[in-house]
Amino acid sequence: MSEFFHQYFDFTVMGDHFSEVLEGFFKNLLLFAVVVLLALLWGLILALIRQLPGKKFAPLRFLTIAYIDVLRAIPILIILLLISGGIPYLEFIPKDIRIPHWFGQPDPFWYSVLGLTMVYGAYMAEVYRAGIEAVPGGQFEAARSLGMSYGKAMRHVVVPQAVTKIPAPMLNEMISLLKDTTLASVVALGEAVLVSREILAESFNSSAVILAGAMFLVITLPAARLVDVLIKRNQAKVTRGAHIEVG
């Protein structure tokens, strides 16, 4: 039993390697920050395209739905491996873009940004969609009947209401995203998991891995609590009763 503690909770090891693991963790945070902004935007675009009405836009809607389904179905790990393994071979793309080294971050970082944005954009699109569909259809009808165009009705009536239903599930997705930044370790990004595994290989001790896990906990645990609070608050709003819902 004491061997177990030595393997996983050796505080000397943790102390010795604390700044290394922390530096790696900052990479996770940076990756998270970049992807979260891009994915929120990309997801919104996807969600809006998906809602475009009429026969004219049917092919666009279909493509968007297919994209969302496929990207949510393929394991993120596979997508990251495909991107980092495949893109460098696309010779028609100029080298600076194909193997990016922007803002001091190497190509594994940007490949991870691409992969995670593609996937989380899809997940977030679904959160937006749920929010939009939670707005009663009568709202849209009323807005249109008053003469508002599709765009104006969305902008002034539907989306502002959808937005209130979104924070809780969106926060859930963001917690997932933070955890999934660790997948970047397979494309050799020096983030917390990779660093802690290196330390494991050198010291034959897994305590650094626990340390990395603890760093994530510090953020994800309070965030998960916050989600619960948000959900409860939203439910209270709904049951307090806005208008009469008679069939």
Binding site: G85, P88, Y89, P108, S185, A188
Partner: peptide
């Protein structure tokens, strides 16, 4: 994580 991955990265040019 694996030796061949490193070789692949070389071939890909990264």
């Amino acid at each position: 994580p694996e030796g061949p991955d490193a070789v692949n990265a070389l071939k890909a040019g990264t």
